[in-house]
Amino acid sequence: MDENGTIVPAEVKGWNWGAFMYNIFWGIGNKTYLPLLCLIPVFNIVWVFVCGFKGNEWAWQKGDYKDVETFKAVQATWNRAGIVQFILAIVFIVLYVLFIGTIMTAILNNNNY
């Protein structure tokens, strides 16, 4: 049971990729506004992880879900989108680092001649 007296089923608890990657939009879509704290610079570095960990609980408390299966079906869409966005972000970061490394290597090698 949470502070509002809402019982959060154990099946609902867990990581939510949608709340982690799309925190602000996810929060508005799920009528929970704590993810808006991600708008605060520097604090948001920690808060995105809080959103990922607590997102399902917040969404359950604020939502009008008739059962756990309906809740999981709704959050599954957010989770798929979040994990795809996370993978794309990692790929982009790796490619960016490789690109910068290649440019720096070319510059350093060009200066040696």
Rank of each mutant, 00 (worst) to 15 (best):
M1S: 15
D2M: 02
G5F: 09
I7C: 04
I7H: 05
P9S: 03
P9M: 07
A10F: 03
V12Q: 11
V12S: 10
K13Q: 14
K13G: 15
G14W: 12
G14F: 13
N16H: 06
W17S: 09
G18K: 02
G18R: 05
G18W: 09
A19N: 12
A19L: 09
A19C: 13
Y22S: 09
N23V: 02
N23D: 05
I24F: 03
I24A: 01
F25A: 13
T32F: 00
Y33K: 07
L34H: 13
P35Q: 04
C38W: 00
C38E: 00
C38P: 01
L39K: 04
I40N: 11
P41F: 06
V42P: 02
F43R: 00
I45Y: 00
V48K: 01
V48Q: 04
F49G: 09
F49T: 07
F49Q: 03
V50H: 03
G52K: 01
G52E: 06
G55F: 00
E57D: 08
E57S: 04
Q61C: 11
K62L: 02
K62G: 00
D64F: 09
Y65C: 05
K66S: 14
K66Y: 10
D67R: 04
E69C: 01
E69V: 07
E69Q: 11
F71Q: 11
F71V: 01
K72V: 01
A73H: 15
V74P: 08
V74A: 12
V74I: 14
Q75A: 02
T77Q: 14
W78Y: 08
N79L: 05
R80F: 07
V84F: 05
F86P: 08
F86N: 14
L88V: 10
L88Q: 10
A89E: 03
I90S: 10
V91I: 15
F92M: 11
L95M: 12
L98V: 14
L98T: 01
F99D: 01
I100L: 09
G101M: 01
G101I: 13
G101S: 01
T102N: 08
T105M: 15
I107Q: 11
L108S: 09
L108E: 10
N112R: 11
Y113Q: 11
Y113D: 13
